[in-house]
Design a protein around this nucleic acid. Structure first.
Length: 760
RNA sequence: GGGCGCGUAGCUCAGUGGGAGAGCGCUCGCUUCACACGCGAGAGGUCGCAGGUUCGAAACCCGCCGCGCCCACCA
């Protein structure tokens, strides 16, 4: 560790690695299962993607979770931070596909089995790097037990849940309109779609009536989908069209006969008040089509290109090319009456960034309403608390309006759906059926389906393991806001349904750390900041402190200044400790209990310490991490260092200093413990230099705030002295007196009897 | 269209009924034996705008302006 005498600064780079090794070797990161979940403390980490690298969100969330885990570990709880990664279906498959392309091959060329083997190899090579990065932050996860959502046991849990839900009638297969992502060539769920504002052209197109008398004009921004039109709809009360309902129109370019129907969905004010109905490629039209029993035609294929059903001259064209071709053909027939620019929202895939093509396809769905009710009740009744409060409403609103979830994905990397087909027969089970000629459903499950089981599948469910008994339900789930529905709500639903209890008591939704420009950090814009660079530059404690100090109930812009502030705190604490430790005489060790104050300033700092302990404990308990971090800073800087240590310095340097040394050791020891969850490295290092300190600080008891040590009169007395000193210093500077000069002065005021020497 | 939130010092943000604050930046002064990644002293704010409640409002209420996020099936 080196001699403190020669170390004038806290040099995190040198010290942190060694300290982490000591923690890891201690085995304290890995609690043996025992006791009940109510006595123990556990947090399941939001599993990063196998492919993931540490970003600012991970770093903040890591700081939050580690602060909680370390705090509760010091409170004497058996504390487990459950660790693991997510197979991340689309993201991982996309990465490996890209790699294959660079090697001049493709997943189709390899075939499914070889491709999956390849992904596993890739995972062996690159997976889990992120945990090395978490370690640099000091995260005290249980590294001995790393879970993966495609581990054998986990797969069993996923398949069992699928089969159970199927047996309960909550999972079903249907031809339904879905968000088709041509980029990943898979269906995706509603939550993976983002709207973008786009200015398109609204085309007014004449559909001639079959009677030969006149035409109906419809307005559309997607002329290419007219090839799949199967009706025209008008509002039932729309007098302009009343007599046309029941008649037939002829679809231009195709010649199909389209019934003219009445449906209240149609807005008479929009366009011409007549709407072309395309059940195969529009969610609304799909509903109308089902209500009226219309034919469903699909003309856009899985690759986003027009199928043969679109007709010979359009087959193979991309959807946008087809739009131009259709418009050209319509112009040739003089069907386009007019056009106007039109700005509206268009769905894009959050995954691939490509435009979503709504299309009908055969998919697996999960009914959510039945599961949603208890999940809402758990929050309404306070069995789960969501912080900040504002997120509670979002959660409840989403559950109240929940819709079926499309859970099948047309990928290879993931949990393959446990359904086998043979002719008309279907077998749903965790084991393949007996006999020959069965083929398994090729689709895999949405990644969030397996993530939804995370808090209990990681603990061995469906087996009744000691881990499950000891650590489920977990205590806190800390996460970013954008996966509240995608992940958190689904864990609640599935936890209640399968593990028999809520998956966690508290949900903490942390800030999103934005770039300086107020937008999300972006690699392509170069506005991202790598947390590991910050660790290199300022140390892990500084990064943790800074992120916690930045965190809030809302989004914040990243400011490196806060991290610098953390670095200052670590350095300050290091040097304050040096002052005390280097003056402790032989034979004086850390007192077992708080010593009696010898002077008013002793009483004062002891009193202020109790308040700092109370405030820090309360801040962590209420998930106000900025209060915890900044409060520590204020105590260490503003009270301990600026005043107490300055005042006692002469006593520490005096010959017979046993008393004050012991007292200062006590204050130091309590302060190190108090700061440890936020800045674990420097505090652990210093603890190792405290004479009489036993074991790791990480395992020490959490300081208790002792009401009887709060001394209001000492606080007032010293507070007055501080104010007097500040006033005198101001005066000194104003009159231009040299700081080193000695001036005769007389103090004429009451209440300074014991502090006047310090004022002097 | 519905919902939520934000607007406080040059920057990033705390503060939510009674003193306008922190870090960084800026100015001035200090090689004081824990720390120059330091110490001390300062400058800097109509707390978005307008109205109301109150003895008292940065904070509570109403409106407006500006910014952001989420949800939503009007072609």
């Amino acid at each position: 560790m080196g001699d403190l005498r020669d170390r004038k600064r806290w040099e995190p780079a040198e010290a942190e690695r060694a300290i982490f090794e000591r923690w890891l070797a201690s085995g304290l990161f890995h609690p043996e299962p025992g006791g009940s979940a109510a006595e123990n403390y556990s947090i399941a980490i939001p599993p990063p993607n196998v492919t993931g690298a540490l970003h600012m969100g991970h770093a903040l969330n890591g700081a939050v979770q580690d602060t909680l885990i370390r705090h509760h570990r010091m409170m004497g709880r058996r504390a487990k931070w459950i660790l693991g990664t997510d197979h991340a279906g689309i993201a991982t498959q996309t990465q490996v596909e890209r790699l294959l392309r660079s090697e001049g091959t493709s997943k189709e060329e390899l075939g499914r089995e070889a491709f999956i083997r390849r992904v596993w190899e890739w995972r062996e090579q690159y997976g889990g790097i992120i945990f090395k990065q978490y370690q640099r932050l000091g995260a005290s996860c249980d590294y001995e037990e790393e879970r993966f959502t495609l581990d054998e046991g986990y797969v069993r849990a996923v398949l069992k849940v699928f089969v159970d839900l199927y047996d309960k009638g909550l999972i079903y297969r249907d031809n339904y309109i879905v968000n088709w992502d041509p980029g990943s060539r898979s269906a995706i769920s509603d939550l993976e779609v983002e709207e973008r504002e786009v200015t398109d052209t609204l085309y007014y197109v004449d559909y001639p009536l079959a009677s030969g008398h006149g035409a109906v004009t419809v307005a559309t921004v997607r002329p290419e989908t007219m090839l799949a039109d199967t009706a025209i709809a008008v509002h039932p009360d729309d007098e302009r069209y009343g007599r046309l309902v029941g008649e037939t129109a002829i679809l231009p370019l195709v010649g199909r006969r389209l019934p003219i129907i009445a449906d209240p969905y149609v807005q008479p004010e929009f366009g011409t008040g007549a709407l072309k109905i395309t059940p195969g490629h529009d969610p609304n039209d799909f509903e109308i089509g089902r209500a009226h029993g219309l034919e469903e035609i699909v003309v856009i294929g899985e690759d986003g290109r027009m199928t043969e059903a679109a007709g010979e001259r359009f087959t193979g064209l991309g959807a946008l090319e087809a739009r131009d071709a259709v418009v050209a053909a319509l112009r040739e027939e003089e069907r386009i009456v007019r056009t106007e620019p039109y700005t509206h929202n268009v769905p894009y895939s959050h995954r691939s960034g490509e435009r979503i093509e709504p299309r009908i396809s055969l998919q697996w769905f999960m009914r959510m309403d039945e599961l949603a009710r208890p999940a809402a009740a758990a929050v309404e009744e306070g069995r789960i608390r969501i912080h900040p409060e504002s997120q509670r409403r979002r959660y409840l609103d989403w559950l109240a309006n929940i819709r079926p979830w499309c859970i099948s994905r047309q990928l290879w990397w993931g949990h393959q759906i446990p359904v086998w087909y043979r002719g008309e027969q279907r077998h749903v089970g965790t084991e393949p059926p007996e006999g020959e000629g069965w083929t398994r459903d090729p689709d895999v499950l949405d990644t969030w389906f397996s993530s939804g089981l995370w808090p209990f599948a990681t603990l061995g469910w469906p087996d009744e393991t000691p881990e499950l008994r000891a650590f489920y339900p977990t205590d806190v789930l800390s996460t970013a806001r954008d996966i509240l529905f995608l992940w958190v709500a689904r864990m609640v639903m599935l936890g209640l349904e399968f593990a028999g209890d809520v998956p966690f008591d508290d949900v903490y939704v942390h800030s999103t750390i934005l770039a300086r420009d107020g937008r999300r950090m972006s690699k392509s814009l170069g506005t991202g900041v790598d947390p590991l660079d910050l660790v290199d530059a300022h140390g892990a404690d500084a990064v943790r402190f800074g992120l916690l100090a930045m965190s809030s109930t809302q989004d914040v812009r990243f400011s490196e200044e806060k991290i610098v502030q953390g670095q200052q705190l670590a350095n300050k604490l290091f040097n304050a400790s040096r002052l005390v430790l280097l003056r402790v005489p032989e034979g004086v060790t850390l007192p077992r209990t708080a010593p009696e104050p010898e002077t008013v300033e002793d009483a004062w700092i002891l009193s202020r310490l109790q308040r700092a302990i109370g405030a820090t404990t309360a801040a962590i308990a209420s998930f106000e991490f900025h209060r915890a971090a900044l409060g520590l800073y204020d105590f260490v800087y503003g009270e301990l260092c600026d005043w107490y240590l300055e005042i006692v310095k002469p006593r520490l340097y005096a010959e017979d200093n046993d008393g004050v040394a012991g007292f200062a050791l006590h204050v130091l020891g309590e302060t190190l413990a108090l700061a440890h969850p936020v800045i674990p490295f420097v505090t652990e290092e210093l603890w190792g230099h405290v004479p009489g300190a036993e074991g790791l600080l990480m395992a020490r008891r959490w300081p208790q705030s002792d009401e009887s040590r709060i001394d209001v009169s000492a606080e007032e007395e010293v507070g007055r002295a501080i104010a007097a000193v500040q006033e005198l210093r101001g005066w000194r500077d104003r009159v231009g007196a040299a700081p080193g000069s000695v001036l005769p002065a007389r103090l004429e005021a009451a209440g300074y009897e014991r502090t006047s020497p310090h004022v002097a």
